[in-house]
């Protein structure tokens, strides 16, 4: 099987010149849920690397989570195509950062109980042949003790997607892994010490 990183299903890694993709019509399917997915097609053939890696470090000075996410450019490209309806290569994607921010902030977010989601700041993006890196920042209110992290990046592309965050909270370091059956993780935030 291919080790070529060219998208998560065969339609991803080639340019279909004669078929138009459907616009990003999202259907609410709460009632369909598990039944649909049990019948989902095998989509694991184009590349087998269905993972994202992120480093998230609590910056003591700003008391914010500084996040660097590493993704396959092909996966990000396909996600942006599907979510925006725009057919373009990632390198030439119009308003790429805005589309990436919109997509990623809907897939990776931080919640505190019933309070609104914590705002996510866009910091920047880097693109190479191997990787796409996106940098985000999440300021933490100083009294926050616990947040729920939700990460279902690319779950809309690939059934076997797994996302990993290497979380560094001052002296503590841990790995959070997000899968389709467990897209959230609870994180205990250390007490902020006044300086």
């Amino acid at each position: 099987m291919s080790a070529n990183d060219l998208g998560s299903d065969p339609a991803v890694q080639r340019r279909r010149t004669t078929r138009r993709r459907n616009a990003p019509l999202f259907a609410a399917l709460t009632w369909l849920g598990a039944w649909c997915c049990a019948l989902a097609p095998q989509t694991a053939h184009a590349h087998p690397y269905h993972v994202t890696f992120a480093e998230a470090t609590l910056d003591e000075a700003s008391w914010s989570l500084q996040i660097a996410i590493r993704m396959k450019p092909e996966d990000l490209e396909e996600a942006l195509r599907r979510s925006s309806g725009v057919e373009a290569k990632l390198e030439e994607f119009p308003d790429r950062a805005a589309h990436a921010y919109r997509y990623l902030s809907s897939k990776l977010f931080f919640e505190r109980g019933d309070a609104p989601r914590l705002p996510i700041r866009w910091v920047g993006m880097e693109l190479s042949l191997r990787d796409a890196w996106v940098y985000l920042e999440v300021p933490l209110p100083s009294k926050t003790r616990r947040v729920t992290v939700h990460n279902d990046i690319f779950f809309d592309l690939e059934l076997n997607q797994a996302n990993t965050i290497e979380l560094r909270l001052l002296s503590e370091q841990t790995t959070l892994t997000f899968r389709r059956d467990q897209p959230t993780a609870i994180v205990e935030i250390p007490v902020r010490v006044a300086r």
Binding site: N22, A28, L29, A34, C36, C37, A40, D181
Partner: peptide, 22 residues
């Protein structure tokens, strides 16, 4: 078995294209 052995995902929204494939 490939279909039946697949674990149940947890999403409730999906793109139209994925739905068509399903």
């Amino acid at each position: 078995d490939s279909v039946r052995a697949r674990s149940t995902p947890g999403f409730s929204r999906m793109p139209y294209r994925s739905l068509r494939r399903i």
